[in-house]
């Protein structure tokens, strides 16, 4: 398996792979998101308790799940980058971070909008909300740390170390907040009873989860490709690539 994987550690091959995968991820994300959203918004049955407000679930749950998934994959990339000194993995950390931060933000905002009619308040110090907020801070820390360095390599490594430290802390933060919450709030918040969700509600949810996953994958490809060429800016293959791309842009402008 290593023999098969090894060529992808080379920058040029990885760059090409990113653009090879991009159209698949893009189309899959458009299709699944479109079908899932329309199905969820228009065709799924309304919840017997929450009425139509529950339809926010089709955006809230995917962004919440994937905000954590993105953080985990970012930390795995960071670990691979640190342990095996694979540069593309280091670069992937910063490719994933902004997308993960946007998902976390969306999970928080949709959670707040959903919370207003259900709990009567935009924000409650619910355990899951609180740890999601802390996750957003962790993302912002990684992004800010990366950007603070003049030297991209140093920034990428520093951000990787922080991502690894963060991922060790994420479960600790999560359980501490959960425990704190039960200590303080008791039964004031009725957590959503998670009954076995009916299949006509579940299918669109699975579709939107897949949709957000493909968006994450597509954007990671796009951003990683940029990171790769930026990192290899002095190499001949990037020089050739830049000449080719810039001249094709100017030619298409001239033909117009």
């Amino acid at each position: 398996m290593w023999k098969w994987l090894h060529p992808y550690a080379k920058a040029e091959v990885a760059y090409q792979l990113c653009y090879k995968l991009l159209p698949y991820f893009s189309w899959l994300s458009v299709i699944t998101l479109a079908v899932g959203s329309v199905w969820g918004l228009a065709f799924a049955p309304a919840d017997y308790q929450q009425g139509d407000s529950f339809r926010i679930i089709y955006f809230h749950v995917p962004t919440a799940i994937l905000s954590m998934g993105a953080y985990t994959s970012m930390a795995i990339c960071a670990l691979i980058g640190m342990v095996w000194q694979i540069r593309n993995a280091e670069l992937a950390v910063y490719a994933i971070a902004p997308v993960g931060a946007v998902y976390t933000f969306l999970a928080l905002v949709t959670g707040a909008i959903w919370g207003k009619p259900m709990w009567g308040a935009w924000w409650v110090w619910d355990a899951r909300l609180t740890s999601e907020l802390i996750l957003l801070f962790l993302y912002l820390g990684v992004i800010a740390l990366y950007n603070a360095f003049e030297d991209r390599r140093t920034g990428a490594r520093a951000a990787s170390i922080l991502a690894i430290v963060g991922v060790i802390n994420v479960p600790i933060i999560h359980y501490s907040v959960e425990w704190w919450n039960t200590l303080h709030q008791g039964a004031t918040i009725t957590k959503f009873a998670k009954p076995s969700i009916s299949t006509d509600m579940l299918w669109p949810l699975l579709l939107t989860i897949a949709g957000f996953m493909f968006v994450l994958a597509a954007l990671t490809c796009l951003r990683l490709a940029n990171q790769i060429i930026l990192n290899d800016a002095r190499r001949p293959w990037v020089k050739a690539l830049v000449e080719r791309e810039l001249s094709s842009v100017s030619m298409s402008k001239a033909s117009k």
Binding site: S37, L41, A46, G51, D52, S53, R55, I56, F59, H60, T63, P98, V99, V102, F105, L106, V109, T110, I113, W114, K116, P117, V215, L219, L222, R223, N226
Partner: peptide, 29 residues
């Protein structure tokens, strides 16, 4: 949306707005 229109549609707008923003940003990058 059974009187929840403002909540549902505002979250839809924010989600797709933010997605569009990050997609455009990534493409422009």
């Amino acid at each position: 949306m059974g009187d929840y229109g403002a909540y549902v549609w505002s979250s839809v707008a924010i989600v797709f707005g933010a997605l569009a923003w990050i997609v455009v940003d990534s493409v422009m990058l």
